[in-house]
Design a protein around this nucleic acid. Structure first.
Lengths: 151, 151
DNA sequence: GTGCTTGCAAACGTTTTGCAGACTC
DNA sequence: GAGTCTGCAAAACGTTTGCAAGCAC
């Protein structure tokens, strides 16, 4: 669907709000604050963390509203979420989406460029017709520090 | 790595039970049935699915026992679990462990040989000293069928 | 008999849902 | 005023835990 949809170059808070309005959506405090929190940093943030940040400015915003809006923003292509092993999912702007190498021992996350996945991508495509989406999952393993640790 | 410990070539139900006994553990119905369920097929099974199978033979086995034993078996190196995107974790014998390509639309899973990850593995190692564990996460993307579907 | 294992029930952390009221347009 | 969004509370989901009774050794 969405003939042109994936023009994913998240521009600014106001641009996204305009996008929402164009779709018949309303611009609310919760939405503006959530977007501001998201644009604030490129870190992986959990729904809970985002909620805390939004609540520091608008205390009444409920976490269920955060989830609903993250969902909506994901549908719009503004945000993507990633599953980093166990624990909660993390969200970021799709414009700063990238892959992750997550240490299964200490939890440290390295941001990896897509090119690291080039071979995997073409291999999966050639053999299985499978198109990987390296931004939507985390690569688990052991970081340098933990690699020595438990043999 | 793993001096000797990971002699992971899960032989048979009885072998594993012997291993358990050697560690001071007890051989119980729940454990034997769980192992039999695991050895039964190489599919990815959820804790719930395994519980159902065990319960069909030993109705009183509680799912918490399944979790506890899967945990223990994982500590023994007999079993590994994987996170396939959303939803529950899946478990399988480490002797048949493999990587997965999971379609984020239809959920279909393809079992991928480790060699597909060779480049990614060496790239991550060289650049970041990160040793990937391709069996412990799923590669999300779109399968051939769904790839045509949504743009 | 010792002490590892179990069933149960209850709690956990994350996410989703139903609903009536509040708000944006 | 119409219809979208919200807060709240409660449920859903997968998983973990505390406990007393039960079983393997």
């Amino acid at each position: 669907m969405a003939a042109s949809g994936s023009t994913v170059s998240s521009p600014s808070v106001e641009d996204v709000l305009a996008q929402l309005r164009a779709r018949g959506g309303r611009v609310t405090t919760a939405r503006r604050q959530l977007l501001e929190a998201l644009f604030d940093s490129t870190e992986h943030r959990t729904a809970e963390g985002l909620a805390a940040e939004v609540q520091s400015r608008a205390p009444d915003v409920h976490i269920s509203t955060i989830y609903r809006n993250l969902d909506e923003l994901e549908r719009l292509g503004v945000v993507v979420h990633t599953h980093l092993g166990h624990g909660p999912a993390t969200y970021h702007l799709s414009s700063v989406a990238h892959s992750h190498l997550v240490c299964e021992l200490c939890g440290m996350a390295i941001e990896a460029p897509d090119e690291l996945f080039r071979e995997l991508a073409s291999g999966a495509q050639d053999r299985y017709g499978f198109r990987i989406d390296p931004r939507h999952f985390a690569v688990l393993g052991r970081c340098r520090a933990c690699s020595g640790a438990t043999s």
